[in-house]
Structure formats: C-alpha cells, structure tokens
Write a protein that binds this DNA or RNA. Structure first.
Length: 189
DNA sequence: GACCAGATTGTCT
DNA sequence: GACAATCTGGTCA
C-alpha cells in the first residue's frame, strides 16, 4: 500500500492507462478504485487536447508526469486526468470510472442520488462524487491530498476498446477497463 | 429499454 | 461565436 511514485507515471501513456486499473484514487476523505481509463497521447492522437498545439488550457499535458489535469466541459462537468508520458512528450490518462471504496456516504451526499452504481460510472460523475474541481488542476499527485496509491489488488480481466465521446481517433483502442465490473461506464459488460 | 436533444461554461479562433 | 474527452431527462416503442 503505497503512493504511486513519479516513475510509475513517467512511462508510455498507454501502459500507465492500463496499469492504473485496480489502483485507488484518493481525495481528502473519499476514495475509489479505478476501473476504467482512457489514454490520450500527444501530437499523434487526433482526439487528444494536445494534438494540435500547446495552449494555456492543455499546457498541463505537456508538463511533468504525475500531475493532475482537470478541465471543465459541456458547461456542467469536470473531467479528471493524470499526466503520464515519457520525457519530452505530451500525454495524459483520463479516469473514466471508479468503484466507490471509502466514504461512500459523502459521495452520495455530493451526487444527491441513492443509486450506488450510478455514483461514479462516468468522468463527470466521479469528479463530483470525489469532490474534484478546477482547483485541483495542475497539482502534483505525488505529495498527498489528492493522489493515487497501490493497494496490492491484482486485476484479472482487463479489456480494451475504442474511446468514448470523441469524433476522431476512434479506431485507436486506448480505452481500458475491468471486464465485468458493474461500475464501468456505458452498458453492461 | 433505446434513442435523441438540451443544458451551460470555459477556452480558442 | 463555435465547440467540447458528458449527463440527464424526455419521448417513443
């Protein structure tokens, strides 16, 4: 049980995306097990924010690995990413879904719903449940507060598929999830 | 249950 | 001014 070090994030974005499955995402008093991720590369990935050029908004993706990248979208929702790439490349892993693990009651209060399975099975949902917002953009995940740790949990069945909610790059299978887990977004397994 | 359109704000051109 | 890595609620079957 230890906080993931810089070396974990400073690897190929796709590897980090796959290996984040089963890890524990912690923020303040709430936490959830990551069950679904998507990897977004740099200039070679047309669906990535970093595909075109560096702007104030996406500059975090060009920064150092192990940093949180939070952005606001569609007027209502935040999405939480972890910057992860080898040196001198842009890239980040989008956390799409987690399984509620710690302080589920607080998540229910924040989401204002009673359905546990509907609590964190989507990017906009999990940020609301865990209390992640714009103030978390650009902060490090290596020091505590907001961080990801290894619980020693071994993931058995992982699967990959096309990413969701994008118009380009859909042929790239950069979405990773735990097969059969009820908290994965979308429909059933 | 499946499909469709609206909501609503920050950022870029 | 247009658009976006989404969610919710409505309508129709």
């Amino acid at each position: 049980m230890c906080v993931l070090p810089y070396e974990f994030y400073n690897r190929d974005t796709r590897i980090v995306g796959r290996e984040l499955l089963g890890k524990l995402l912690v923020n303040e008093s709430t936490a959830g097990i990551i069950v679904e991720t998507e990897s977004y590369m740099g200039e070679n990935d047309p669906a990535s924010h970093a595909a075109r050029k560096k702007t104030p908004r996406n500059s975090v993706m060009f920064g150092s690995s192990g940093v949180s990248y939070v952005y606001f979208i569609y007027g209502n929702h935040y999405c939480f990413n972890v910057v992860a790439h080898k040196d001198n490349i842009a890239g980040a892993v989008l956390i799409r879904a987690v399984e509620p693990s710690l302080n589920t009651g607080l998540m229910i209060k924040r989401r204002k719903i009673n359905d546990i399975k509907n609590l964190t099975n989507g990017p906009g949902k999990l940020t609301q449940a865990l209390g992640i917002n714009k103030k978390h953009n650009g902060i490090t995940l290596l020091k505590g507060g907001l961080y990801i740790k290894d619980t020693g949990l071994k993931v058995k069945n992982t699967a990959k598929s096309s990413r969701i909610g994008i118009k380009e790059g859909t042929e790239l299978l950069y979405r990773y999830y735990i097969k059969g887990n009820p908290f994965v977004s979308g429909k059933k397994s």
